[in-house]
Each structure stands twice: as structure tokens, then as C-alpha cells.
Design a protein around this nucleic acid. Structure first.
Lengths: 202, 202
DNA sequence: TCGTTAATATGAGCGTCCCTCACAAATGTC
DNA sequence: GACATTTGTGAGGGACGCTCATATTAACGA
């Protein structure tokens, strides 16, 4: 499998350009979240941003490039948000670690809505996601090893895969019923706490 | 949200028509699995099946309809497969229940490859998936209540949601590394057994 | 055997999509 | 103001899903 080079967005040089780019990304985020990636047309995005179609292509050479710019914003926010988790993690018991990780996912829920529509439709995004997921799993593994020194590297890595998979349940549940404080989220906390407890006990 | 009426596939009346339909669905399954739903063109599907584009549209009035026919095959096989789980479930401890459910997902892994490409791209399929998931959760809840009479209906329903979500981890892991017997699947068995054990203990 | 009817087969062409391009307008710098 | 650079514009090219008028094939009674 070869690395796919994707034409990136062209940086705006002047103030007006920066506003345009921001408006275009915002319009794309709204429409992708509303109708999905494929159902959204480039003409539509340009219209909602108050720009001509050619102006959209001036900054984003393809629909994929716009999706990637959107994804980059999400990735930056996610990385910053997890840094906060790492600050709070040391010394906490399994139950609190589980809550920290669940809350991390809950906080990103809103931003995620737009990017979630991309991950399945845009080939380039799928590949961009992988290193991000790898990094997250690595950081989770570090937290686990810090909490239980007896854990081998492989054991921590395997456990981190499971933990990250359980964390993915959160946005799936939040999407199906976003009304109350969600008893199902509580049940997911229990699930994750059980597993982390088992891992730390090993 | 209104119910979306989707034009269904036209049933072939003669033997040659049935062969055509089978060849077309097979071609679609192959191509969707290879390149994804959006990247696959209707012309391509017709070509691989050895048919003209008009012949394809004779039986499937739209690309979505073809996707739905594909999905139906998967749904039928899944239902039949879970009936076998229900036969074996009564009287088993948590660990064995977990293994039964994980193995159920593993068995469907191959067929799932083609349909997984659709679920995110085809709006009609997303809606068709929902009742299927509801039915699965209901049947899991029944198994749980049979194993623990003290469980209320709501408790069993909530637990079934979590169990079905954990089961979704299986194909995700099988996709990332389909080489060895997968130690991560073993870790998922442990996770599910832990949770079901907790539920049955309540 | 043949004629009739329904089923199946065909591919040029329509509308819409993503995207290109030649050129016009606006902005910053001297 | 002159000039270079950035930004703005929309008609049109190529490819897609899909339609339709028409041709071919299969089934069955006379």
C-alpha cells in the first residue's frame, strides 16, 4: 500500500482570504453534519459561505481537501483535550480513570458530529485517522503502565486497544439518544471500570 | 422524520433473469468490498456481471436498491446464525455466553465485509439497520433475563445495549489485523465475560 | 410450426456532480 | 497612482447515476 499524496488546502495570505476560508470550513462542517459528506455538494457549500464555486476551489483544491481541513481542526482539539486527561490521571483508581476517559469522549462529542460523517466516506481521512488512533492508544497504554508497574508493554498495548474500543461506544450511544444524562453512559462507565480494574489487578 | 419509501428490486420471472440478478449482486458485493460504495460505478458492476447498464437497471432501479438487496442477504444469514446462539445459550455461565456471542460475530465477519461498506454511505441502509439492531438487542436481553430471573426488563435492556456494543468491537478488531487467532479477540472475550458476569450477579 | 405476449437486453443521451480555466476585481506596497 | 499579488467569478469539460425507445429472447396456446 503506497502513501497517498493529497493536495492540501492553499493558505490564505490576506485578511479577507482568512475569513473566506473560515466561512467555507464552517459551511462545510454544518452541511456535512446535516446531510452527510456525499450528499453535500460543493456548490451548496460555496453558496452557504456566500462565495462562488471558483472561490471555494481557490483555497481547497478538492472536496477531500476541505474535509481534511475540517478533520485537522478536530484532531487539534482532541489532542489538547487528552493532554488534560494525562494531567489528571496519575494515582487515580480504576473507576476514576474510566470516568476520565469517558468524559474525554463526551467532551469531544459535539465537534465529532461533523467529522464522523467524513471518516467513512473520504478515503484520505481514513488514513489520517490511523496514526491519530495509534497515538491515542499509546498514550492510554502509558497511563495504564503508570497505574500498574507490573504490566508488560504488550499487555498494556493490548489493554489499550480494548479501552479505546470501549471508549468508542460513548459517541455511538450519545448519537442514538441525546436527551437525558443517559443511563447507558453510566453503564459504559461501569464496563470500562470493570475492565481497567481487571487490568490493574494483573 | 418521514418514512422513506425506496423503490425495491424487481423480481426476475425467468431462469435467465434469476442468474442475472445473482451475478449482479455478486459483482456488486465484490466491488463494494474492494473499492467502497461510492467509488464503485454502476457501469463497472454491469461490466463485471457481463451485462449492459440497462440490464442492471431493469432489476435494480437504483444503486441504493442494489445495496439493499445485498444487505437483505446479510440480514437473513445473521438472523439464522443468531437462532443457533439462542439454542445453545440456556443454562450457560457468563464466560460461555460471552464466547457464544463473540463467536457469532466472528462467523458473520466475512459476509459483513461487503455490507459494512454500505452502512455508512447509503442512507436507506442506515434506516434498515435500526430495526435489525433493535431485534438483536431484544434477543440478547431475553437471554440475559433467562440467565438471571432477578433482572428487571429495563436492566436487561440496558445491559443488552452494552453487550451489543461490545460485540461490535469484534469486526473492528478483525479488520485491523486478520492474521493470527488474534489475542485481542481473547481480550474482548474477557471484557464481555466480565460485564455479563456482573450483570448476572446483580 | 407459428404467432403473440411478456420478459429481458441494449446503449445513446439527460441532468447533476466535481472540478478547470481564462479572465476580472480587489488588495497591499512603493 | 502603478504594479504585483491575491482573491473572485461562472461557463463548461468529463464522469457519474439513471431513463427510455427499441431490439431480442423465451414461454405457450393454436
Amino acid at each position: 500500500m503506497s502513501i497517498e499524496i493529497l493536495p492540501t488546502a492553499k493558505e490564505p495570505k490576506r485578511e479577507r482570504g482568512k475569513q473566506r476560508v473560515a466561512a467555507l470550513i464552517d459551511a462545510g462542517a454544518e452541511l456535512f453534519a446535516e446531510k452527510g459528506y456525499e450528499a453535500t455538494t460543493m456548490t451548496e457549500i460555496a453558496q452557504r459561505a456566500g462565495a462562488a464555486i471558483g472561490s471555494l476551489y481557490q483555497f481547497f483544491p478538492s472536496k477531500e481537501a476541505l474535509a481534511e481541513a475540517l478533520f485537522n481542526r478536530y484532531a487539534e482539539r482532541a489532542a489538547a483535550s487528552f493532554a488534560r486527561v494525562e494531567e489528571l490521571a496519575p494515582g487515580r483508581p480504576a473507576r476514576e480513570l474510566a470516568d476520565l476517559l469517558i468524559d474525554y469522549k463526551l467532551a469531544l462529542r459535539t465537534d465529532r458530529d461533523a467529522t464522523i460523517a467524513l471518516s467513512s466516506s473520504v478515503a484520505g481521512i481514513v488514513e489520517r485517522r490511523k496514526p491519530l488512533g495509534d497515538a491515542l492508544r499509546g498514550r492510554i497504554a502509558s497511563i495504564l503502565r503508570a497505574a500498574n508497574r507490573a504490566l508488560s508493554e504488550d499487555e498494556a498495548a493490548a489493554a489499550a486497544v480494548i479501552v479505546s474500543q470501549v471508549m468508542k461506544i460513548v459517541p455511538a450511544l450519545a448519537a442514538t439518544e441525546n436527551e437525558r444524562p443517559l443511563p447507558l453512559i453510566g453503564e459504559t462507565r461501569k464496563l470500562l471500570a470493570l475492565y481497567i480494574g481487571e487490568v490493574l489487578r494483573t
